[in-house]
């Protein structure tokens, strides 16, 4: 039993959208066929993407957190999009848990997307089938690629390595360790979909200064205390009395 998934580390994601376009770039020429773009040079350009980065502001100035939030298919363990599909085009693979769409079976009824609370599926307006993140299933098992490149395009591209990829069922995998140790969580747990993709929260590093750290015995200011000897040519007691 294995379940491949992404773990997205919001602690380091800067929202650069590398994952967004590298995904599109890989997949538009992949087995899914092209990923169409409408009005690519006109008003309201819009197209099919498997992955998008959203931005949220948490809190009020000046205590505002800006959170960049990449989201693609979460490859739920209990994927609600699968049983609703009338044709079986939407399916979850036994061997690795990837949720896929068989484009030859898809009738384009969009019901699977309705059944996804995360808005992870996108209907391709020109291919007329439902599309979604495949975890680059055409890369990760491709023996012709070097092993280090058998990863989803978004993972390879991510400049902050905010995207970890691996088997969340394997307790020793990088992703499982990250989830366990860094507070990995799931989106909308209230629906029992058990998303396989997890998110790691922001973690803060703080510095605590103790008062006694401010001044140390070797404070360099001490070296600047100049105590010149008093001048010899000015009057002293020697000049006025002989005792």
């Amino acid at each position: 039993m294995s379940q491949l998934a992404l773990v997205i580390d919001l602690n380091v994601c800067v929202g650069c959208s590398a994952c967004v376009t590298s995904c599109k770039e890989w997949n538009t020429s992949g087995p899914a066929g092209f990923m169409s773009d409408d009005n690519p040079y006109g008003k309201e350009p819009t197209g099919t993407f498997f992955n998008r980065v959203q931005t949220y502001e948490v809190g009020c100035f000046p205590n505002t957190e800006t959170i960049h939030f990449p989201k693609s298919c979460l490859h739920c363990e209990d994927a609600p999009c699968v049983p609703v599909c009338p044709t079986g085009a939407s399916y979850k693979r036994e061997e690795d848990g990837i949720v896929l769409v068989d484009y030859d079976k898809c009738i384009g009824c969009k019901y699977c997307s309705w059944a996804c609370p995360y808005g992870a599926r996108e209907f391709d307006e020109h291919q007329k089938v439902m599309k979604k993140c495949t975890l680059c299933v055409d890369r990760i098992y491709d023996q012709s690629l070097p092993e280090t490149e058998r990863k989803p395009a978004c993972v390879l591209s991510c400049p902050t390595s905010a995207r970890l990829f691996g088997d969340v069922e394997d307790p020793e995998s990088e992703v499982s360790v990250a989830i366990r140790e860094e507070g990995g969580y799931q989106l909308m747990p209230e629906w029992g979909t058990k998303p396989s993709n997890h998110y790691l929260p922001r973690r803060k590093t703080r510095l605590h200064i103790h008062e006694d750290e401010l001044v140390r015995a070797d404070n360099p200011l001490k070296k600047e205390e100049r105590q010149p000897s008093a001048p010899v040519d000015e009057p002293t007691l020697d000049d006025s009395t002989s005792w």
Partner: peptide
């Protein structure tokens, strides 16, 4: 509603506002 912006992104705060969705010309969503 069981779902909220808090459960959707997994952040606890009573003021969370979306600033961008990464697709200004709209999307299937």
């Amino acid at each position: 509603y069981k779902s909220s912006i808090q459960t959707a992104i997994g952040v606890r705060h009573n003021q969370i506002v979306q600033n961008a969705q990464g697709a200004m010309g709209g999307s299937y969503n």
